[in-house]
Design a binder for these strands. Structure first.
Length: 547
RNA sequence: GCGGCAGUAGCUCAGUUGGAUAGAGCAACGGCCUUCUAAGCCGUUGGCCGAGGGUUCGAAUCCUUCCUGCCGCACCA
């Protein structure tokens, strides 16, 4: 049983017997400083108003009820009225079999109660290969999907394919122009033009597959270029994401929305709700009613749909597919777009059911020097190149080691280094060490035994207890990462756990101890290894047995 | 101009759902390998949490004014 859960139960019944309500903001957490014990509660301070007593008196009342608890060794009252709890060693020791029994499910939670959540991420326009910035969104989205699933949500991962807009026209035109230039026609690059080498490659392929393309009507030629180009690029994107171990369950086409008349349905819906109106020959969305700073155009006066229009329809479609919550992961340059999208969701009657996570820019560096990037100019480091150069584990961990809304410096030379500046190795090394010791033990004829209370009672030094207490926190870390959508907290947790393991490892030589102690420690190591493995799995990073 | 995010140790960053003496890594300095992986461990040094004001038992955290940086403000996507 978790320490926090035990306290919740015990304190809950004490409060009930006193007729006090559990204060909503009361916290129950390990104190920052270990000298205050294992768990700390501010509940007495929170109850003070309700109970009309001073906090310390309330704390005394609660403490008096806890004397008989078999797991709690000590209760202290400190400062303005903190209740500090110290649990008995046997309480902690008994956690270990639980970790081992749960195995791959250790840390799993029912928090989400089966809520249906959709996470849409990456969704880069299929106009060029993915670059490093997309990689961050990919790592974050994929990790979030894993965390939400692990915390009891039903999750679907989706990629929105923008195959209907102006960018696609530019892509088709770029390929067509390049194709003609390759054949000696004297055509100047248009203003909006993708210039990357991949355009040239695609142009060559198009010509090979369509030898007569130069003689066709221009519109047909461009259409062929556009379709072929988009499909090739999309295939490349899928391949890159697969290599990065990123999962999308659904590839949703923008064009399918437009062609099936879904956008018109959404317009009709909005008009019926009084949220859309005609003006100056255009159709407008009345987003100012819902907190946006200006109304937004849905259908331009020339009859074209805006991106926003199909996006509203797209979100409408998401909710019609039955998701309770929709999460969009966007680049930070889209932040100005959030108010109108939230307004749109509200207009659809789904207020509060859209979470937008912004991912800040990635500065790609090499040896401290910034590498310039631009898709249009074809100057960028592709995700594929980066993954090939520094590896999937190192790049994923790097992306997930920072809050999503802060800028990230991604230094290729640094990420390749196998030092502590690159914590992925530190965590993986902890796991590999554990496997190595267990392996060495097996070679000496010592297998990991089933745990008994007698064996576990031998685990009493500070380093051993510290490892157990950290493992106990894994659930809370995972749940909070899911609730606040902050995957980076798992990276930090794993670093702490790895650090505790390394410390234990270097202070206590395992295989040279007495037989029973070896057995007990192997059981502990097995549990720690499993926790590290589960945590790394949430990040999509491997847990190697050897390094 | 309006808005978003940021400003914490020399560097890169956690901590921000109000809690106790603000943390980690790197860098610097000093130790630890004849035993399980030194990609490791231990120790020392290092802070006006951008600045001022406010809210309260208590503020890096909330409110407010200001300074600095990045980004966004289309009938583009």
């Amino acid at each position: 049983m978790k320490a926090k859960l035990h306290l919740q139960n015990v304190l809950g019944s004490i409060l009930e017997s006193k007729g006090w309500e559990w204060p909503e903001k009361a916290t129950l957490e390990p104190p920052r400083d270990k000298k205050f014990g294992d768990m700390s509660a501010n509940i007495a301070m929170m109850l003070s108003k309700q109970a009309k007593m001073n906090p310390r008196a309330i704390a005394e009342e609660i403490k008096g009820q806890l004397d008989s608890d078999p797991y709690i060794e000590k209760v202290d009252i400190a400062g303005p009225g903190f209740l500090n709890f110290t649990f008995s060693n046997s309480f902690w020791q008994n956690m270990i079999p639980e970790v081992i029994a749960k195995g791959d499910d250790y840390g799993r939670s029912e928090m989400g109660k089966g809520k249906k959540v959709q996470v849409e991420y990456v969704s880069a326009n299929p106009t060029g290969p993915l670059h490093i910035g997309h990689g961050r969104g990919a790592a974050l989205g994929d990790c979030l999907v894993r965390i939400l699933e692990f915390t009891g949500h039903e999750v679907e991962a989706e990629y929105y394919v923008n195959d209907a807009g102006r960018q696609m026209l530019i892509l088709g035109n770029s390929i067509w122009v390049r194709l003609q230039q390759n054949e000696g026609r004297d055509i100047v690059d248009p203003e909006d033009f993708y210039k990357g080498d991949y355009i040239t490659d695609i142009a060559k392929e198009v010509l090979e597959l369509n030898p007569g393309i130069l003689e066709m009507k221009e519109a047909d030629s461009v259409a062929i270029c556009r379709e072929y180009g988009m499909n090739q690029i999309l295939e490349g994107i899928k391949k890159d994401l697969a290599a990065f171990d990123v999962r999308h369950d659904v590839w949703f086409s923008e064009k399918s929305l437009v062609e099936t008349g879904k956008v018109d349905e959404t317009f009709a819906d909005l008009k019926a709700r009084g949220m859309a109106y005609e003006k100056d020959g255009a159709l407008w969305f009345k987003s100012t009613d819902l907190g946006d700073d200006k109304d937004r155009v849905l259908r331009k006066s020339n009859g074209d749909l805006t991106y926003f229009a199909s996006d509203i329809s797209y979100h409408d479609n998401k909710y019609k597919r039955g998701f309770d919550t929709v999460v969009d992961i966007w680049g930070a340059d889209h932040h100005g777009y959030i108010p109108r999208m939230q307004a749109a969701v509200e207009a659809l009657g789904k207020k509060g059911q859209l979470d937008v996570i912004l991912v800040q820019l990635v500065n790609l560096l090499r040896g401290g020097e910034q590498i310039a990037m631009s898709t249009r100019a074809g100057k960028f480091e592709t995700l594929e190149d980066v993954v090939n150069e520094v590896g999937r584990d190192a790049s994923r961990f790097m992306f997930l080691s920072r809050k999503s809304d802060s800028h990230l410096d991604f230094d290729l030379d640094l990420v390749k280094q196998k030092t502590m500046e690159n914590p992925v190795y530190y965590v993986q090394y902890a796991h590999a060490r554990i496997c190595s010791v267990i392996q060495k033990a097996a070679e000496a004829g010592i297998e990991v035994e089933a745990s008994t209370p007698e064996l576990l009672s031998l685990l009493g030094n500070p380093e051993e207890l510290n490892l157990i207490k950290l493992m106990d926190q894994f659930n809370d870390v995972v749940e909070s990462a899911g609730e606040y959508m902050t995957p980076h907290t798992i990276s930090y947790y794993l670093r702490d756990l790895a650090s505790a393991l390394h410390r234990f490892y270097s202070m206590h030589h395992i295989l040279s101890a007495e037989k029973e102690i070896i057995a007990a420690r192997l059981i502990l190591l097995k549990a720690v290894g499993k926790t590290l493995e589960n945590g790394l799995a949430l990040l999509g990073v491997s847990a190697p047995k050897k390094m």
